[in-house]
Design a protein around this nucleic acid. Structure first.
Lengths: 356, 356
DNA sequence: CTGTTAGCGCGTTCAC
DNA sequence: GTGAACGCGCTAACAG
């Protein structure tokens, strides 16, 4: 910048004014400065700027994994909503590990994010301490925890699990199985577990056995994991009638396993997933699933952040509102497509339930 | 930090020494400081540190899209390789847009990355200027461009396209189609286009018509796009014998479309994709594809960066080596799985070609 | 409309 | 073994 100001024959302050379009600069001066900037290929140092402004200009997003279309959509929604306010989004991922989440949050905090959006699950005590008031605002997303850190945008995963069970029961199925998330060291998918919990609760409430609710395999959820779980399920109960998979990923794997074994879906087994992944829509038959608006959650989080923190461009605020604990329920839609069917002789059933 | 030093009754200098484990501090003093740090929940300000050290401690990774398992693997490989050297990875994505890539690179440059890894495609002239020498080292990844910016790690996508054609021809197919990447405004998938180009060249070299090499649909590549392209292909040539899709994503969509129409794959049509996505392995039949080691490319990039730039922990280097233009060919494997079969009466053919 | 001064939070050199 | 002083590149507040 010093070079630029010298080349343009003005002070560094004037250069700054041109760069920020704060006006009050003579057109001729401005032109000289702009020329110098492009001649030198000068790009202002954001780190130094932040240090001075005390506004880092970015929002941290902590994801469990990159390899999941739902989280990708979430990230895109957030980025999109934050762009007009001139915020950048920094993405970190944890592989569902609680320790890794703590590490990620700590390194993000070191760069002083204006806000933190947490899609990772299962916060450690140290993490909770790290995020106490006085710190940047925190939004937990894709769930509505019992003990939220602050703000939350998402859905009740337990309710989604219950809805899955109720739908399968409503179809007349009585022998219900589930493919849960499993655990792997300190890796934990609390949302998947909540869905499984809701499912089990609803099945139990109907007076039916819940021993077929599997929770094994590794994390992150994967196609292969779903295929393996389906195989285990069939070994345990060859006459299982309906299966809920807590992720479309495992549902797709389960569907493939059935196809490999010549088991008709939905003829002999009804299959229901969660997440409404693109792949599920394309499959033959198309996967029945529970859909949530992930891009919408991201956008909502972006809007909330803009509300909580004045955008960096104005330079005005930065003050955090008195912590008005807000939670936003996005709800979900249960989509009965091609992999679910009423029990008994050739039942056909098309329904669509909406929960918000 | 000021607060910490006061609480511990020492100078800020001593606090810094404890934080960096540079030694030369009395155990008792050290304990006092550590206690103060955790009592206050103090996290050092990295931005200020970077300003002073002139080492930002992060590497920028620019991806075309988040919603693609190959790029997710790439990111994981890079992160993994860079972790021991204490680098963080900042991820940006462009949606395949050339203008957006320029914007992303500019904002990254503003934070002074130690290196840049570019998986996005189709650099604008302004981008090339931005990345001229004197700037951080740049690694282009997942391709080996004719006019590389500097270093490159990847494969020849043209060679992959040629291999696809050769394989399909070798199977005895004569009526070959392809599903390319399409363009959408300034969005461009140069790698997909290179694969298509290689394919077309090989088909032409065999003296066969290339009119069935489609390049339409939007970006990013998607299942739906593949299904639509397959429909278009069948409308144009109902008797097409073999199809190469430049992405497994579109290949899976094409396979679904065939299944919906009752067209046997590989019975009537051979189908070959690219990318070796998890989903392709799980499908019935499993998708024939071209595999590349994406995590490996990420790790190789990480190692190259560590070689080019001394890690921030040592604080020693930061100097860029004399630009030894390096290109690393990772090669690819053509995997004939369940969706390709020799033409004619019940031909069976299992081959596995390796190119590096 | 433009320049000067001070300081953001930290690391580093040198004294003590 | 510990502390004081300066500077990293930039911007906020004020002066001219």
């Amino acid at each position: 910048m010093r070079d630029v100001s010298r080349l343009a024959g003005v002070s560094r302050m004037t250069v700054a004014r041109v760069l920020h379009r704060s006006g009050g600069v003579l057109p001729t001066t401005q032109a000289r400065v702009e020329q110098a900037v492009s001649a030198l290929g000068y790009v202002p140092d954001r780190a130094a700027g932040s240090l001075s402004t005390r506004r880092s200009g970015f929002v941290g997003l902590v994801l469990p994994t990159l390899n999941n279309a739902n989280f990708a959509s979430l990230a895109e929604g957030l980025t999109e909503a934050l762009r007009p306010a001139n915020y950048e989004v920094l993405i970190g991922y944890t592989g569902y590990s609680v320790a890794e989440e703590e590490r990620q949050i700590r390194t993000m905090l070191a760069r002083r994010p204006e806000a933190l959006v947490l899609a990772a699950t299962g916060h450690s005590p140290a993490t909770r301490r790290l995020l106490e008031p006085g710190r940047p605002p925190v939004i937990e997303i894709a769930e509505l925890p019992d003990q939220p850190l602050a703000h939350a945008i998402g859905l009740s995963n337990e309710a989604a699990g219950r809805a899955a069970a109720d739908t399968l029961l409503g179809l007349g199925h009585r022998k219900l199985g589930a493919i849960g998330p499993g655990r792997d060291g300190d890796r934990i998918d609390t949302r998947g577990e909540a869905r499984l919990r809701g499912f089990v609760a609803a099945v139990a409430a109907a007076g039916l056995p819940t021993s077929l609710a599997l929770a094994e395999g590794g994390l992150p959820n994967s196609y292969r994991h779903g295929a393996e779980a389906m195989a285990a399920l069939l070994a345990q109960a060859p006459d299982v009638e309906a299966v809920f998979a807590i992720s479309d990923l495992s549902a797709v794997g389960a569907l493939s396993e059935c196809q490999r074994r010549g088991i008709a879906v939905p003829g002999r087994i009804s299959l229901l997933g969660f997440g409404d992944f693109d792949i599920g829509q394309q499959l033959v038959p198309p996967l029945s699933t529970i859909a949530t608006d992930f891009p919408g959650m991201g956008r909502a989080a972006g809007r909330m952040i803009i509300e909580l923190v004045a955008p960096p461009s104005t330079g005005a605020g930065g003050l955090q509102q008195p912590a008005l604990d807000r939670r936003l329920d996005i709800g979900f839609n249960l989509l009965e497509r091609g992999t679910t069917r009423a029990a008994g002789p050739a039942g056909i059933n098309h329904r669509k339930a909406s929960h918000a």
